[in-house]
Simulated assay, not measured.
Amino acid sequence: MRQFTTGDLNKQVGDVTDAASREPVVLTKHRKPRFVLMSYDHYQRLRTGSDTRKVHRAPGMPAEHMDLFDAEIDRLARGEGYGDEP
């Protein structure tokens, strides 16, 4: 989970909200976690328990998911994806 300071929120609201649209982010104040910012859809899934995502162990992962996973591992091995996320 990414972290931002409350100062970051004031200075870079677009970056913080973009990150929160993908996954919940922690907002810190005085180096301590204070808030969690997330998309409304994510919040609704938490409230209603309607999250339909599934968890798979690697050996039992569907083939299409394994292909995506392998592609991302290759991308990270090339040094892409560290700090260059939108």
Results as ranks from 00 to 15, higher is better:
Arg2Ala: 09
Thr5Phe: 00
Thr6Cys: 03
Thr6Glu: 08
Thr6Trp: 02
Asp8Phe: 00
Asn10Pro: 00
Gln12Glu: 11
Gly14Asn: 06
Gly14Thr: 04
Val16Ala: 00
Val16Cys: 00
Thr17Leu: 15
Thr17Ile: 10
Ala20Ser: 08
Ser21Gly: 08
Arg22Ser: 11
Arg22Tyr: 11
Glu23Asn: 06
Val25Glu: 00
Val26Asn: 06
Leu27Val: 02
Leu27Met: 06
Leu27Phe: 03
Lys29Met: 07
Arg31Pro: 00
Arg31Met: 09
Arg31Gly: 03
Lys32Leu: 13
Arg34Asp: 05
Val36Tyr: 08
Met38Arg: 13
Ser39Arg: 07
His42Trp: 07
Tyr43Lys: 07
Gln44Val: 14
Arg45Pro: 04
Arg45Asp: 13
Leu46Trp: 05
Leu46Ser: 10
Leu46Pro: 03
Thr48His: 14
Thr48Ser: 15
Ser50Pro: 03
Asp51Glu: 14
Asp51Val: 04
Thr52Asp: 15
Thr52Lys: 14
Thr52Gln: 13
Lys54Ser: 10
Lys54Ala: 11
Lys54Phe: 04
His56Trp: 15
His56Asp: 08
His56Tyr: 15
Arg57Phe: 11
Ala58His: 12
Ala58Val: 12
Met61Ser: 07
Met61Asp: 11
Pro62Ser: 12
Pro62Asp: 13
Pro62Ala: 05
Ala63Gly: 11
His65Arg: 12
Leu68Asn: 09
Leu68Arg: 13
Asp70Thr: 07
Glu72Ser: 06
Ile73Gln: 10
Arg75Cys: 04
Leu76Ile: 06
Leu76Asn: 05
Arg78Lys: 15
Gly79Tyr: 04
Glu80His: 14
Asp84Leu: 07
Asp84Ala: 06
Asp84Asn: 13
Pro86Gly: 06
